[in-house]
Nucleic acid binder design. Structure first.
Lengths: 369, 369
DNA sequence: AGGGCTTACGTAAGCGTTTACGTGGCCAAA
DNA sequence: TTTGGCCACGTAAACGCTTACGTAAGCCCT
């Protein structure tokens, strides 16, 4: 059963094809009588306007591209959902693409999206400068960046204040009495990681603590414990992951009493390293990590985290993009705020004073003394 | 800078627009000389074919619709990723939509996808019969269903053997010595849930155990501990979630010694209920649940699960769909297999015999006696 | 020499919309 | 009776491709 087109509708209603277009879009006055005839014809023929043809005619396709590194990363999953909820209300669709942080794959999907004539683009760019991305921008495609920014690209960026978030996390640990705080970051060259590293350093410096470079460790992001295929496609650099790297660190004579995990993809490996090294958290080592997880509150111990407003981040990015698509002037919004969620994976270091305690586990530890 | 079109290229190369099209698509012989001129022109003008126009002309848009209930559900996240990896190789894009198991929203997104002239559709349908979906099928849109099937729709279904998986899970528990095994299922009307319930019942019957209806509990699926906005959009029925429902069950005089969780969205709530009720797992109660999680191996205890090949499920669905789009004859594939991943959340019930033990924790418990 | 075949490419219709412009009918004012 | 204007709608070009069909040039064969 071939789909009816507007010509069929016009014939059926005894009007011109222009009129059916106008009743559909409400773009000019049509008498009540003819409008009714057209509506009836549409019903009778089960007519649905062809968005592709409309796209050709208007150059608006009602599709936006969403490109992230990996949709299985809960950060992006939630963000994508925020985006979709926002745009679907305006009858827009999202085309989802993964880059795996690979500039080549990024290039490929950007070409496809460009060909698809998306009305706009929300992208978490890889670290590499992308001529293709710059080309899209120059061609007038509205773009908003999320989480990180692409070199040379002048497009609004929606992200959190990573440096400040890390600073808060480290300050919290310092307040608990820690002085040797490791910082675990992602090997991928993403600006978020260096920003968080800077926050780590600043907190240390401001507290008058030594900045020991040997406490900065980098690991290959990977899914831990996922299905085999997932694992294969996610291990990117084929270099040691968080658990391997940390088990080395933990055997050091002067091991840290706390660890700050700057990437949500590294948390599971860290937890595994604790277990493998026989370290109890928070008794032997404290943990604070970026990004909340849905399992974090019921983990043992419940994880203290820096929560990012992921869903909201997607919403805001989408709202901004829609404004740009509609030709409204927009200004780069401020950073979103991260939130310190105190649960129980941070406690004062052992054999230290307990001033500044303010969570249950710390009190338990204190009481146990 | 307006984008060049094929006419610009033709003019620049001194050939006709038809020739440009043919060198791009390789659809007819073009002399090496002219081919070269066209290629040069394409480079010079940075020409990219407009997929929308091509779509209008050929009626193939190189887009497929992917509709799931909730992309934040890791099951669908992995599946979507499998789909994308598969179709991107053929330069196809996916349009992602969420339904929240809401027939109305499903209807809305299906209309949009229909208008967008997707070449095919991969859908995890809601339980409700959908005229819109049936209409798309009748209009000739290739469709493959995943996870569950839609009433009245004749389209291949890619899923796992839910009944058998549940049967295996329960049989495993029975082998461990359990006789009172609760079954926690999702309130949403999805066929997977009833199938798993049937597996539960069959295993019990075949073992000659009583089928106690009071051990079947239903809960509202919801994210537990997620961000506030996530929670709001996910709680669907505004009815008690897993943790509330189970805490009731656990205070019963004859509480179950094991629980089978039939939905991955209910596992976190179950774990929370354990904690809230002061129940230790697996010492006081055993747990086996559908779907693996990336945090399951490092949870305390590591969770024994029925793993579904989620990523692969997406791949297979995509492969099948591509064949259908290419007009090849396809046959409905067999169920995918679920896999019992034995970790440590299942142990023999206390004060019972220990025959049939086969996991570490069970042995520990045994040894501890 | 003329017809026919091949080679390499051009012409133009068509895909299903939107939209600038045109037009017939009717009514009121001159 | 004109004329002008409004009202309600139709005509046709345009969007950027694909593709069926047409065609000019060159060659071979009789």
């Amino acid at each position: 059963m071939a789909r009816a087109n507007s010509e069929d509708v016009a014939r059926h209603a005894g009007v011109s094809i222009a009129t059916v277009s106008h009743v559909i879009n409400g773009t000019r006055f049509v008498s009540e009588e003819t409008r009714q005839k057209v509506q009836d014809a549409i019903k009778a023929l089960n007519y649905r306007p062809n968005a592709v043809a409309r796209g050709l005619a208007t150059s608006f396709t009602r599709k936006i591209g969403v490109v992230v590194s990996e949709i299985r990363n809960p950060f992006f999953t939630a963000t994508a959902r925020g985006i979709e909820d926002e745009v679907i209300r305006q009858r827009y669709n999202i085309i989802l693409c993964n880059t795996d942080e690979d500039p080549e794959r990024e290039d490929a999907v950007l070409h496809l999206l460009g060909a698809q004539q998306v009305d706009g683009l929300i992208i978490a760019p890889t670290g590499a400068r992308s001529e293709t991305l710059l080309g899209l921008a120059k061609a007038g495609v509205p773009i908003v960046q999320i989480d990180r920014s692409s070199p040379g690209l002048d497009a609004p960026l929606i992200d959190v204040n990573n440096e400040e978030g890390a600073y808060q996390a480290i300050s919290y640990l310092i307040g608990l009495g820690h002085t040797r705080i490791a910082c675990l970051i992602n090997l991928d060259v993403i600006s978020t990681q260096t920003e968080r590293l800077q926050g780590w350093e600043r907190a240390l410096r401001e507290a008058g603590l030594p900045v020991d470079e040997s406490l900065i460790v980098r690991a290959d992001p990977r899914f831990f414990g996922g299905t085999p295929d997932a694992k294969a496609s996610i291990t990117r650099h084929n270099l040691p992951g968080a658990s391997e790297v940390l088990q080395g660190l933990f055997t050091l004579p002067q091991r840290p009493s706390a660890i700050f995990v700057a990437s949500n993809q590294l948390t599971l490996g860290t937890l595994y390293a604790f277990r493998a090294s026989g370290l109890r958290c928070p008794e032997d080592i404290s943990l604070i990590s970026f990004d909340d997880h849905d399992w974090a509150p019921i983990f043992n111990p419940p994880l203290t985290v820096m929560r990012q407003p992921t869903y909201q981040l997607g919403q805001i990015a989408a709202q901004l993009l829609m404004k740009m698509i509609n030709g409204e002037a927009v200004s780069a919004p401020p950073h979103l705020q991260v939130e310190l969620i105190k649960r129980s994976s941070c406690a004062p270091p052992r054999a230290s004073n307990f001033e500044g305690l303010n969570n249950d586990h710390a009190k338990e530890v204190s009481a146990a003394k």
